[in-house]
Simulated assay, not measured.
Amino acid sequence: MHGPGSASWLLVALCAASGAYCLLRMRSRVEEQRRTAGGEALMGFGMALMAVPAAVLAPPSGVWGAYVAVFAAAGLRAAWTARHRPHHAHHLVGAAAMVYMSAAMLLAPGAGHGAAGVPALTGALLLYFTAHVLASGARLVPVGAAVTPEAGVVSWADRPELALVCRLAMSMAMIAMLLTL
């Protein structure tokens, strides 16, 4: 997952900022925001740690095993939640991608795809996250005045468009990480 220094640090900053905002969303008055925020914060901070340049922090191989366990547990929780809320399937795919990348680093640290080409699972994940980025970006395009005077002041933790921006940013970061795998 460790790419060029400046790109890695940009990924670290992007993912850490997304994780921090997700922690803020855990204080939301909207139950659905609180329900998803913890898993998204875990994903953001996990991706930030994974993107730290190897020259700065070269984790021992045992760390990758811990990543596999943590994100497998997050994936199980996302699968359980997605049974009743199908829109949570994105969290399941994200956790599966983290398990896949962590397992790849555990089994062959530092080895890229090389001459073997891109494995089918990596390609499928790249297609999924690219589609998610395009769909999320399209939903952010304003279609008219969305201000409702009766809604009052909305706190930072309750802004659905900012939650969508966090998901968009983490999907873009996932693409970058999958490309460097």
Rank of each mutant, 00 (worst) to 15 (best):
M105Q: 15
L49Y: 02
G110P: 13
M43W: 01
L49M: 10
A138E: 08
S155Y: 06
S171I: 06
R35A: 13
L121A: 15
G94M: 10
G117E: 04
L126V: 00
I175P: 03
G62E: 09
A120S: 04
A135V: 14
V12L: 13
S28Y: 07
E161Y: 10
T36F: 05
L162T: 14
H113A: 13
G110R: 09
Y21E: 10
R25Y: 00
G62Q: 11
V63A: 15
R35V: 07
S61F: 05
G114I: 09
M26R: 13
A7R: 06
M170T: 13
V30N: 13
A58Y: 04
M172N: 03
E40Q: 13
G39E: 04
S18N: 08
A111S: 07
C15M: 12
E150C: 07
L24F: 05
R159K: 12
R34S: 03
T130Q: 12
M174L: 08
A69K: 02
A108W: 03
A78M: 01
A115G: 11
L76N: 09
M174G: 12
S155A: 15
G123I: 01
A48I: 08
L134W: 07
W156I: 14
V93R: 11
F45H: 04
L179T: 04
R25P: 00
A13M: 15
L121T: 10
L134V: 14
L49P: 01
A13S: 15
E161N: 06
W64E: 07
M174N: 06
G144L: 11
R34K: 06
R83P: 02
H90P: 02
H132R: 15
A103G: 08
M174I: 09
H2T: 12
D158S: 10
V56Y: 08
G46H: 00
G39C: 03
V153C: 01
A16V: 08
S102T: 05
S6Y: 08
L24W: 09
P160T: 13
L126S: 02
R83C: 06
A95S: 15
L178N: 00
M1N: 05
W9V: 06
A66G: 08
A116K: 02
R29E: 11
P4M: 04
L49A: 12
Y21V: 08
A41S: 03
A7Q: 05
G123A: 14
R167G: 14
G144E: 05
Y128P: 05
R34W: 03
A82D: 08
H87Q: 13
L178V: 00
R25L: 11
A108K: 03
L140E: 03
G62C: 11
P119H: 06
F129T: 10
H90N: 11
V52K: 05
T180W: 02
T81P: 00
E31W: 05
P142H: 04
M105N: 14
A115I: 12
A131V: 10
A111R: 07
R27F: 14
S61P: 13
G3F: 02
M170R: 02
A115L: 14
Y100V: 05
S102P: 02
M170D: 00
A51K: 10
A176G: 11
R139H: 07
M47Q: 14
L140K: 02
M174P: 08
L14V: 12
V68N: 01
A41V: 02
P53T: 14
H88N: 14
